[in-house]
Nucleic acid binder design. Structure first.
Lengths: 142, 142
DNA sequence: CCTCTTATTTATCATTTGATAACTAAATGA
DNA sequence: TCATTTAGTTATCAAATGATAAATAAGAGG
């Protein structure tokens, strides 16, 4: 197993991951938000509470654009902006009740597609996948 | 290892894969093409020869838009459209010499970043990653 | 030959995304 | 206190992407 062979394998693998992720998430997002807005909500959902700067860094989106999208999400009542008590320049962003509900809906659509995909997996298969994910997460996708 | 736990693990894993892929490929594409055009070239590179319909299906891009992007790539001399000998409605798309060169450049940038990322991996680590990729590719990301 | 279907193109338009300059307001620190 | 830095906003513009209608042109099947 030389490194170059592993690289080619990785290219093919990541392409598969992207394709399958796309299949699982396709149309799972509400039509009322754009893809970028969905990505932001997803990030907030798993990392909240976050600041606009966190979002900007993590999504690779310039601050003015992040600010614009957060304003739209706020207008749609999907997030809440809370002033930081100590540093009044900072904000804390959280999903609103509506935002939580919207993301839960998406996640449950995605989850049921995932369950369909692995419906024929045995207990041993699940165990193997679990371990494989651990290895890759730790050694490659850290 | 119940399926729901595995699902949550998968969500976190795919998010890591996307983040790392983004780090590896960031700025690796030539400035002369857009992201969608790069995605198309990458698909052609690993799957050629392909037809415009293949690209449309695989990229989830509507035919008129696929056609437009292929025209732009063709104008940039990065691909060649060859008429199918049997069915004259069909086309065969291939990378041109320039297209090959451009993709090779990108791939080698990405590869060197990958090598940097795994520079401290032992022979056993590489072996483990290789097997983990095989398992996931076969059982989950098929 | 005629109709239907398939593969692709052209044209057009709305929306989204990305980039930049200029701004406000608050903290920081000499 | 005053200059500088940090966090976020507003405004604006260009470019990329997505969606749709309508066209061309060739194969397929009766």
């Amino acid at each position: 197993m030389d490194k170059q062979t592993l690289f080619y394998k990785l290219v093919s693998f990541t392409s598969s991951v992207h394709r399958v992720t796309h299949e699982l998430t396709k149309n799972a997002k509400s039509d009322s938000i754009s893809q970028a807005q969905y990505n932001i909500l997803e990030y907030i959902a798993v990392s909240q509470p976050v600041t606009p700067s966190d979002i900007s860094d993590c999504q690779g989106m310039a601050m003015p654009n992040t600010s614009r999208e957060l304003r739209k999400l706020s207008e749609k009542k999907l997030i809440e902006k809370i002033n930081h008590p100590e540093d009044r320049r900072k904000q804390t962003i959280r999903l609103s009740k509506d935002g939580e509900a919207l993301m839960n809906e998406s996640f449950s659509t995605i989850e049921s597609r995932f369950l369909e995909r692995i419906q024929h997996a045995s207990k041993a298969d699940l165990e193997e996948m679990d371990q494989a994910i651990d290895i890759l997460q730790k050694k490659l996708f850290y």
